[in-house]
Amino acid sequence: MLALSVADLSVAYPGLAEPALDVAALDLGAGGCLAVTGASGSGKSTLVNMLTGLARPSGGRVAWGGVEISALGEAARDRWRAANVGLVMQDFHLFPGLSAVENVLLPARLARAASVAVRTRAHELLAEVGLSRPEQPVETLSRGEMQRVAVARAVLREPGVIVADEPTASLDAASGAAVADLLLSLAARLGSTLVLVSHDPRLIGRASRRVTLAGGRIVSDEGAAR
């Protein structure tokens, strides 16, 4: 588990007068659960990119567990993300042609980290998220099942941080609820810090800390004191 510390974070794009993101301070304790919400274009995705190191900010700093990822280069951020972040995205990003368990194992295999223990764990995780046929090709799964495979992939290497970007947006209510349950229970069991970006009120409501963005700025911060 890692603690988040954001200070004076700003992201500006050429040709835009206002910065896309402008966060003076955002701190989250290790093992905490943060929901980020806001209208479309409020800066949620930009914030996810900064928190996961997918992109670098124009100014300010983002640090996880004392590591200032905003100062790292592209390859170093990729390495850091591989070691510390489990990513769940709205459109799954599963690889067709591979089975469910192969998808879960793919990042570990590419990083040459797929030990016997990791492979065993992949099967256990698939059972835990409710997939009885790990060898089933992913393109034949339902959308709810696909997202559960993506969740299993995200937590395979027991990351210190789980970041889920609109994990329930493309799912029906029941599947969305199941995925939300999984994310919260797995994060709690692994002790991972969980960042949920969503405008799904049922998902947001389950986070202990809720931040609302508008125009790239934090306009409300609930539960910070708890």
């Binding site: 997918l54 990729d78 993300r81 995205m89 990003h93 590419l110």
Partner: peptide, 20 residues
């Protein structure tokens, strides 16, 4: 591109993407 982007987002090392 999307696939490669996803591989990188999920932490595939530079060498692995190049090799693929």
């Amino acid at each position: 591109r999307r696939q490669i982007g996803a591989l990188r987002a999920f932490g595939a090392p530079r060498g692995a993407v190049f090799a693929l």
